[in-house]
Amino acid sequence: MGKQRESVDLSGHILPTSATMVGVCVTAIGIIRLMHAGTVGFYVDKLLAIDSVLFVICSAFSFYSARNTQRSAQLENIAESIFLAGLTLLGIASVFMTFKVG
């Protein structure tokens, strides 16, 4: 029971955070388009769009993890992995944006 409770608590953190990260990605795409960042901006906004989709998928897995008690741990592990991949892509995109602006 303790392990299941811990799993649901993590889903409770992943779900709202990944939904917020979708908004961060969409905002960054808008900023890049306003900057007219050229070739780098073209690739960064595509990367952020993919990243946004990853965070939406992560949100779905996290939601289903909170709802499905039998497979909660498995679904949460998937959500966690996708979330970390999304954060990694967001970090890469921010590095490219920094070099373009600087």
Rank of each mutant, 00 (worst) to 15 (best):
S11I: 01
V24Q: 05
P16D: 03
A66G: 14
V8A: 11
A28D: 06
M97R: 02
I82F: 04
L10N: 03
E76L: 15
F83I: 02
L48Y: 06
L15K: 01
D45F: 02
I32P: 02
G38R: 08
A66S: 15
F61V: 00
I50G: 11
I92N: 05
T39E: 15
R67W: 10
G86D: 12
R71W: 10
I32D: 01
V101Q: 09
R67Y: 10
H13W: 07
S59D: 00
S59Q: 05
S7L: 12
G91T: 06
K46A: 06
I29N: 03
A73P: 00
K100M: 10
V56T: 14
L47I: 05
L89W: 01
H36R: 13
L84M: 09
F55R: 10
M21R: 05
G86V: 10
E80D: 07
I57T: 11
H36F: 01
V26D: 10
P16N: 08
A60Y: 13
Y64G: 11
D45T: 07
M35Y: 01
R71V: 05
L47A: 03
T20I: 09
S52F: 03
F61R: 03
S52N: 03
I50H: 09
S62F: 08
Q70E: 15
T27K: 00
I50D: 08
L87P: 03
S62T: 07
I50Y: 09
R71N: 15
E6R: 10
G41H: 05
V8Y: 09
I57Y: 04
H13D: 04
G41L: 07
A73N: 10
K100R: 12
L90C: 09
I82C: 04
V44Y: 02
T98C: 09
A73T: 14
P16H: 05
G30T: 14
S62I: 08
F61C: 09
A85L: 10
L84W: 06
S94N: 09
K3Q: 12
R33E: 15
